[in-house]
Design a protein around this nucleic acid. Structure first.
Lengths: 200, 200
DNA sequence: TTCGAAACATGATTTAGATCATAATTTGCA
DNA sequence: TGCAAATTATGATCTAAATCATGTTTCGAA
C-alpha cells in the first residue's frame, strides 16, 4: 500500500512530536498506523521498568496490525522516536484495503512473515545463547541493512534493549567481540566491514 | 483452507512416523505443510544442544510458510511428535491457494498475527522477566486452551523448553507458584481452576 | 505384574550477567 | 565555544538460575 494513495483517498495525517505516545498496553486496537515520515519504536516494559525493543518502524512502513487483526489488547507501547507524520487507518478501512488493493494482501503476508522470522531468531537467542552470541547475531542482522563501510547508528543502550542485556554487559561484550575480530569498531562505532561474514 | 479440499485437489499425503524429521535448519523451503492428522514440534537447537520450542502444530494447522514466503533458509527443526499425516504443498500451488481460495488469505494473515502475538509476549518474558513470571505467563497461556478442570499435558521439560529455563528450575518454581496459590497442582498435574485468573 | 525408562525431586556448588558505584568521553545545543 | 546531558567505560560485589550429583516416583510396554 502506497502512502500517497492513502492521502489521495482522503485519510488524515496526524503529527506526533518526538517521544509522543501513539498507543500503550491494555488499549483495544482501533487503527493500523502508516508512517508517512519519521520513526517509531515499539517497546514492552517489564514490571521493574526495563524496556525491550519489539520493533522499530520507519517511513513507508505500517504497524499495529496484529493486535487489530486478532482483536486483542496491545502488549506494547508505541512511541515516536522523532517527529513523525502518521496516518491512522480504521479497522473497516483496513480490511477494505486488504480486499480491494491489489498486492496489499500479499505485502502484508510478507511483512508479517519477516517479523515472525526476526522474532523466532531472537527467541532462540534469548532462550539459549549467551551474551556474546546474542550480540553478534543482532549486530550482524543490523549490519545487513546498511552499506559497506557505514556504521550502526544505535547506542549500546539500544543494543541492550534489543537483546535483553544490560548496557554494561553490552559495552564489555562489544570490546570482546572487537578484540576477537568478530566485529569492526572504529571510534566507538560498529562498522560494516568490506566482507560481511554473515549473510542472514 | 480445508484439508479435505486439498485431498480432493489431488495433493498427496505423506506419513511421518513419530520423531521423524520433516525439515531442518539450513534447508531452503520448498513446501508449506498442512497437517491432516498428528502433531509436530518446531524447535531450534543451540550450539550446546539445548532445545527451544518455537511452536507446536496440530491437526488442521499448517506450518513452514514464513521461510517459504520470504525465501530464507529454515531456522528450526520440525519433527513429528507422533505419527502424522502431512500434505506438502509446493510454492507455486501455495501462492495459487492464496489467490484463488476465498478466505484463505485472511486466514493466513490471522494465523501469522496470532503467532506474532505469542512470540512478542514470549520475547518480553525471556528478555525481562524472572523464572517465576515466565512460567506463570506460559502456564496461563496454555491453560486458556483447555477446559476448566482439565490438566496440562506438558512435562516440566516441555515447559523448560518453551521458557528457556532448565527442568530443575521449572520443577522448583512450579512448587513455589503452587505454594503461593498462583497455580493449582494435583498429583503433579497443573489444573485449570474454576476461575481463570488471567484472560490473555 | 514387573521392570526399565521417563519424569519428578532436592541438595550443593558454580557462574554469567546484573547491579552498584564512579569516572572519562562524546555530543549536541544554547 | 562552552557546558550539561548523554554515552561509553571499568572495577567490585551480588544473585538468579545453571550445573552437577543423586535420589524417588510414575508410567508404559513386555
Amino acid at each position: 500500500m502506497d502512502i500517497q494513495q492513502l492521502i489521495e483517498h482522503g485519510f488524515a495525517i496526524k503529527v506526533y512530536l518526538k517521544d509522543a505516545l501513539i498507543y500503550e498496553p491494555g488499549m483495544l486496537p482501533r487503527y493500523v498506523y502508516f508512517i508517512k515520515s519519521g520513526e517509531v519504536r515499539m517497546v514492552t516494559v517489564s514490571e521493574d521498568g526495563k524496556e525491550f525493543i519489539q520493533g522499530i518502524f520507519k517511513t513507508g512502513q505500517y504497524f499495529g496490525e496484529p493486535a487489530l487483526i486478532i482483536n486483542r489488547k496491545y502488549l506494547a507501547y508505541t512511541i515516536a522516536n522523532k517527529e513523525s507524520e502518521i496516518i491512522p487507518v480504521g479497522r473497516k478501512q483496513f480490511f477494505d484495503l486488504i480486499e480491494t488493493t491489489p498486492g496489499f494482501s500479499i505485502n502484508l503476508i510478507q511483512t508479517l512473515s519477516n517479523r515472525l522470522f526476526y522474532k523466532s531468531m531472537m527467541l532462540e537467542e534469548l532462550a539459549n545463547e549467551k551474551a556474546e552470541h546474542r550480540l553478534l547475531t543482532i549486530i550482524n542482522y543490523l549490519l545487513n541493512d546498511i552499506e559497506v563501510g557505514d556504521s550502526l547508528k544505535v547506542t549500546r543502550q539500544d543494543l541492550a534493549d534489543m537483546t535483553g542485556l544490560r548496557v554494561e554487559t553490552v559495552i564489555r561484550e562489544i570490546k570482546i567481540l572487537s578484540g576477537k575480530g568478530l566485529i569492526e569498531v572504529k571510534r566507538g562505532k560498529i562498522i560494516r566491514p568490506d566482507k560481511s561474514r554473515l549473510a542472514i
